[in-house]
Nucleic acid binder design. Structure first.
Length: 1156
RNA sequence: GCUGAAGUGGUGGAAUUGGUAGACACGUUGGACUUAAAAUCCAAUGUCCAUUAGGACGUACGGGUUCAAGUCCCGUCUUCAGUACCA
């Protein structure tokens, strides 16, 4: 009887479906085990052999666990919202739901034929309203929650509101936007409802905010960071730009620390955890504030332009004095002229030139009368502001400031002097008031830099190197840049900013080597040394990370070092005994700090701690932890996604009550954005929310809210709905909970409390590594949130996770020789005569080469002759080129030989192609391993494999290819190996007369083979080493065959071992052995050591570590006896050639090694 | 650059604790069966030398530890994956 796999597989698949063999129950005496695959997006292309790899592995594990006595949940479903169905809809007008439905049918058929033990009664589809109802519900929960840093968990927004109304927000330690002002409970209670909503939005875990997003114009939507690869979209490779848009965001950053800590509690690969750690990007360090001095060094005062404002802060008089001296030495013409007159004592008072008053240098001052005279050049706008601020402060100190322009002074010095004189006389009377107001004055004086918030705040992980700061660098986009830049530097800085803005994100990323930047002319003050530090801008500082500004320590950071070298900025060394003449010393280890005042001699740890302490003492900084993880943008300008349960009243988002969910995706006539740039939902005619009747109604009923009317009546209580949809990761962030409940019972909740309690979380999760930072991070975030709010009981969704490796295609390439005979087109020629399509076989041997060259030449000259004959006058020029061309792998056999006939029929253009073959008439292709792709014709469809070899062969072969987690090439030819094994296995049980198996007593060898196989297979499955199990089956089957084993007590348990891998044949034979029940829950055979105990061992006898021969010796022989026996052996004597060994190593049961 | 994984026959891979390197397959070669092909079965198959017996060399490269190293240690190179001016 033949192994009729097609019949067998069909029958058993039907049996499993009919008997609901794999239906999981939500209560059982057995321990639970939850095995999950990452659910697929049902693409139109269907499955190729790479897709089922992970499913086969998880199925083997699920089936194994059933044999081991577990109540196994092994569900499957579809991540059915997504771009391809929408793109297809845009092109064809077909509703994405229809496309999706069709694709799912194909997927289901393909999955079914492989014989998976899925419990389909729990299927989910993210695009089903009954499913996304709960996605919307979770969104509402997020909206109605805030993150309390004191309790370190999410809480209902109600607790926040009650805190606001009882104590205001000053004491609240929440994860929230950073632009929130402090208010008291009275203020809160007096705020309008709209203002309150506005404030609450800044605290909610999902919030609406104008954010800079990754906008992909080609796709017409925003993309998350993990949807962008190398600066272009993951799907389609379209360019991505930064754009400001109002979007829903998820406050995942609130969970950064817990997402990081949670990694230590789960069994994932190190590389995956590392990816997540990188993505979260925790750095511990300090936040430091550097006051801006805005005191440009070396700035020349010229005729035409006036120096920038003299705004300063902190104690820097030494610098100002230096500066004043410089200015005195280089007066402008007007200043020189006026000084001439003032000094010439034409007036009654004593004036000083370029004198220091407080933090300011003034042009001229009469100290007695507190009169300041300023001579201004052309004043820039922002300098007026600065000068006004300065004037204000000086006036606080009871100085009077009068101003003249250069022109006034140079034109008519006399009238200027007259004005000064007049002021001097008026100042007499004011002088007396001064003392009485002294008290008042001291209250009002503030350090100006601080007053205006003109600090530069930086984040550093190396506060220990703070004395190594020799400059600061701001991102070109930093908001302070335009305010601190000096006139001199303005042109340069502006040019630099423009140049940077022009460069795309991608260029900036690609070109890291080029150092660029510009000096702003401004200075900041070092918090400890009080020395001025030049402020630069440079695009190596990113606006999006930290504060968008850095304190540059060239001796300790290579980027700062390179920047400093490039712009000739000093590089002070603050490391003890480290040479920094070539490069920065970036390490934190093995070094002590030097030239750093109170930090001298300390190591990284102590110095950092001390520096932070000192900064805190001075109020100029504090210890801080920074995360790279950004809040996740949650809006997509797409049709085929979950609609938001949100409507807007006067621009403020409102949640639709849970009772009215789901809000079903509306119909649109086209799936493109509207002409006005709104998302596709903007095309829906019925997309407004009727708050009275709680239903979606026509847009026409919405009365425009112009003029700010807020009363319900004027709207009829009907408001516009949100036009964005949710991103792909919304539905996939919680689907594993939905499976916990049977379809029949999941209307009331996303899953019942009992179900959630019973199944807890996924014990084993298998899927691709491409989700390392997307799906796997978002899911963890949502689960933690749901745990906080008491909706689920677990902290982590996936206890153990394995990434299956990619299966690559083995492309087949032929060498094509194209020959063209260019001719003048004016003639009406037979074109087919001029193009020759010639393929040449790939084999490289010399003999063939000669033959082939000859033949190629033959073909070409023959054609030339034909042309000559037809067009005798034509001047023929021959042009030849060879290029490799992909051919469909299905035309190629295991020996890399091309089926020429099949290839000719592939395409019309190859019908008359010529082939130059090997000597034996075969045509060889060359092979290349690359990603499976339609365009490379190397995609292998599992349908064809199942048809030709059967699902069991496919399952075994996919496992046999290599380790699960490793990428490996597919080569269909190799499947004959495992298929042959199944045929042999069949013959072990069944022959032409029917069943061979009988009640024969097992031999010792039979038992040994069986138990060795039990042990190996069990260990392999536990270690997910599925490839080695397959060879173990082959070995066992070969041994049983050699042993002519027919014993049922051996061959029956062997089927259970095989059943997870090749379930159909196992069921069939199991059934033939007389079992009525499915094999699927038969207990896994118990391994018994006693059958493996050997009486003797074939010892390898080594000489100096090299094995020379083997010797069969009893297992219980003593060490001494082994040595004696071996030494007496004739082969030993021959090996030694009379030498006396120095040493003999005997490891009983292992090896004998003779040294000498 | 950083992080992680890896490098073994013609190919996929095995060797899980340092103890006979190349299991199990594919492919190749030869043979049996057959009119023939397919299927099936048998044998050989790391490289080199040798008629045989046997020997030398072999796990990316260079060192080291050990009676013994694919496995452990140091250094170098290469490949793949992820990530990237993250301060």
């Amino acid at each position: 009887m033949k192994y009729d796999f097609n019949r067998i597989e069909n029958d058993w698949q039907k049996y499993w479906a009919d008997n609901k063999t794999f239906k999981a129950v939500n209560n059982s005496d057995k321990p639970k085990y939850y095995v999950l695959d990452m659910f697929p997006y049902p693409s139109g292309a269907g499955l190729h052999v790479g897709h089922p790899l992970g499913y086969i592995a998880s199925d083997i594990y699920a089936r194994y666990k059933r044999h081991k006595g577990f109540n196994v949940l092994h569900p499957q479903g579809y991540d059915s919202f997504g771009l391809p169905a929408e793109q297809y809809a845009i092109q064809t007008g077909q509703h994405p739901a229809i496309t999706t439905e069709t694709n799912i049918k194909t997927y289901r058929r393909q999955l079914d034929q492989i014989g998976f033990s899925f419990d389909w009664s729990r299927e989910v589809r993210t695009s089903n309203p009954e499913y996304y109802k709960w996605t919307q519900w979770i969104f509402i929960q997020l909206f109605e929650s805030w993150y309390n840093n004191d309790t370190n968990q999410a809480e209902s927004i109600d607790t926040l509101i009650s805190k606001f109304s009882s104590e205001g927000n000053a004491q609240i330690n929440a994860e929230c936007d950073d632009d929130i002002s402090i208010f008291s409970s009275e203020e809160w209670n007096s705020f309008s409802s709209e203002k309150q909503q506005d404030i609450l939005l800044k605290y909610r875990l999902t919030y609406l905010a104008e954010t800079e997003v990754n906008w992909c114009p080609a796709l017409g939507t925003v993309l998350a960071n993990d949807e962008i690869v190398n600066g272009v979209s993951e799907r389609g490779g379209h360019p991505v730009m930064r754009k400001k848009m109002t979007q829903w965001s998820m406050r995942i950053s609130a969970y950064a620390e817990r997402l990081l800590q949670g990694l230590d509690t789960i069994d994932w690969t190190d590389s995956l955890k590392e990816s997540q750690r990188n993505w979260i990007g925790k750095s511990v360090g300090a936040s430091v504030r550097f006051p801006i001095l805005s005191f440009p060094k070396g700035e020349a005062k010229s005729d035409s332009s006036q120096p920038a404002g003299y705004m300063t802060g902190g104690n820097n008089s030494h610098l100002l004095i230096e500066r004043a001296q410089e200015m005195r030495a280089n007066p402008t013409k007007a200043e020189a002229a006026l000084w001439e007159s003032l000094r010439g004592k034409k007036l009654d008072a004593k004036f000083r030139q370029q004198h220091l008053i407080g933090d300011f240098i003034v042009d001229f001052v009469c100290l007695d009368k507190k009169l300041i005279v300023e001579v201004d050049g052309k004043i820039h706008e922002n300098q007026i502001e600065a000068d006004n601020a300065r004037t204000l402060r000086l006036e606080n100190d009871y100085y009077k400031v009068i101003r003249f322009t250069n022109e006034e002074v140079l034109g008519d010095v006399e009238s200027v002097l007259e004005k000064i004189n007049k002021e001097l006389s008026q100042r007499e009377s004011i002088k007396s008031n001064q003392q009485s107001s002294e008290q008042h004055k001291s209250e009002k004086v503030l350090p100006l830099g601080k007053d205006l918030g003109w600090d530069i705040e930086v984040f550093t992980t190396r506060p220990d190197t703070i004395f190594g700061v020799s400059f600061m660098t701001l991102a070109p986009e930093h908001e302070l840049v335009s305010r601190i830049v000096t006139d001199e530097q303005k042109t340069e800085v502006e040019a630099y900013i423009t140049a940077t803005a022009k460069r795309s994100e991608r260029d900036r990323m690609a070109d890291v080597k080029t150092i660029s930047g510009a000096f702003t002319g401004a200075y900041a003050e070092h918090p400890f040394t009080k020395k001025p530090i030049p402020i630069w801008i440079g695009d190596y500082v990113l606006a999006g990370y930290g504060t968008g500004a850095v304190m540059s320590v060239p001796c300790g950071d290579q980027r700062d070092y390179d920047f400093a070298k490039h712009f000739n900025i000093p590089i002070p060394n603050i490391f003890e005994g480290v040479d920094i003449s070539e490069e920065a010393y970036g390490s934190k280890d093995n070094v002590k700090i030097a030239n750093s005042d109170f930090l001298n001699g300390l190591n990284y740890k102590k110095a950092s701690k001390t520096a932070i302490y000192e900064l805190e003492k001075r109020g100029q900084g504090e210890g801080k932890t920074n995360y790279r993880l950004r809040d996740a943008v949650f809006s997509r300008q797409r049709y085929w996604g979950e609609p938001f349960p949100v409507y807007y009243v006067n621009g403020m988002p409102q949640m639709i009550d849970k009772a009215h969910l789901p809000i079903v995706l509306p119909e649109v006539e086209k799936y493109l954005p509207t002409e006005t740039g709104e998302p596709p939902l903007g095309r829906a005619t019925d997309w407004a929310w009727d708050t009275k009747n709680n239903k979606v109604v026509s847009n026409n009923l919405v009365i425009p809210t112009e003029g700010g009317t807020t009363d319900e009546e004027s709207h009829n209580g009907i408001y516009p709905l949100e036009l964005n949809t949710m991103p792909g990761w919304a539905g996939s962030s919680w689907y594993f909970f939905r499976y916990m409940e049977d379809k029949a019972n999941r209307d009331e909740a996303f899953a019942s409390e009992d179900a959630l309690k019973y199944w807890e979380n996924v014990d084993l999760y298998i899927g691709g590594s491409e989700h390392a930072t997307g799906h796997l991070l978002y899911s963890r975030f949502w689960v933690k949130f749901m745990k906080d709010r008491g909706f689920v009981n677990v902290d982590e969704p996936f206890k153990k996770l394995i990434n299956q490796g990619m299966i690559l295609g083995t492309s087949a390439l032929v060498s094509r020789i194209g020959i063209q005979f260019p001719s003048k087109p004016d003639q009406d020629v037979d074109k087919s005569l001029f193009n020759l399509t010639l393929f040449v076989s790939e084999n490289e041997s010399e003999k063939c080469k000669e033959k082939k060259e000859k033949e190629i030449e033959g073909f070409i000259s023959k054609r030339e002759a034909q042309i000559k004959q037809k067009y005798p006058d034509m001047n023929i020029i021959r042009a030849t080129r060879i290029w490799p061309m992909h051919v469909d792998v299905s035309f190629v056999n295991a020996s890399d030989e091309l089926d020429i006939e099949a290839f000719k029929n592939w395409r019309e253009e190859y019908k008359d192609a010529e082939f130059i073959t090997e000597v034996d008439g075969t045509f060889k292709v060359s092979r290349e391993v690359e990603k499976m792709s339609k365009s490379k014709y190397n995609v292998v469809n599992p349908d064809a494999i199942c048809e030709q070899y059967g699902a069991d062969s496919l399952r075994l072969y996919e496992m046999f290819l290599g380790p699960l987690e490793q990428a490996k090439p597919w080569n269909t030819a190799g499947i004959t190996g495992v298929h042959g094994f199944l045929k042999k296995l069949w013959k072990l049980y069944v022959d032409d007369n029917g069943l061979k198996v009988n009640d024969a007593e097992p031999t010792a060898d039979n038992l040994k083979t069986l138990h060795k196989t039990i042990k190996k297979v069990e260990d392999d499955i536990e270690n997910f080493s599925f490839n080695t199990s397959v060879s173990t089956f082959m070995i066992a089957s070969n041994e049983f065959t050699a042993q002519k084993c027919t014993s049922k007590v051996i061959l029956e348990p062997f089927l259970i071992l095989l059943s997870p891998y090749a379930p159909h044949i196992a069921e069939e034979l199991w059934n033939r052995l007389g079992n009525d029940e499915s094999i699927s829950t038969a207990p896994f055979p118990k391994f018994e050591e006693k059958y493996l105990v050997e009486s003797s061992k074939n010892y390898p006898i080594s000489f100096n570590g090299k094995m020379r021969f083997t010797l069969e010796l009893p297992m219980d022989m003593s060490k001494d006896d082994i040595e004696k026996t071996v030494m007496a052996h004739e082969k030993t004597i021959a090996q030694l050639e009379g030498r006396t060994p120095k040493k003999v190593i005997v490891v009983p049961g292992k090896i004998v090694n003779i040294v000498g």
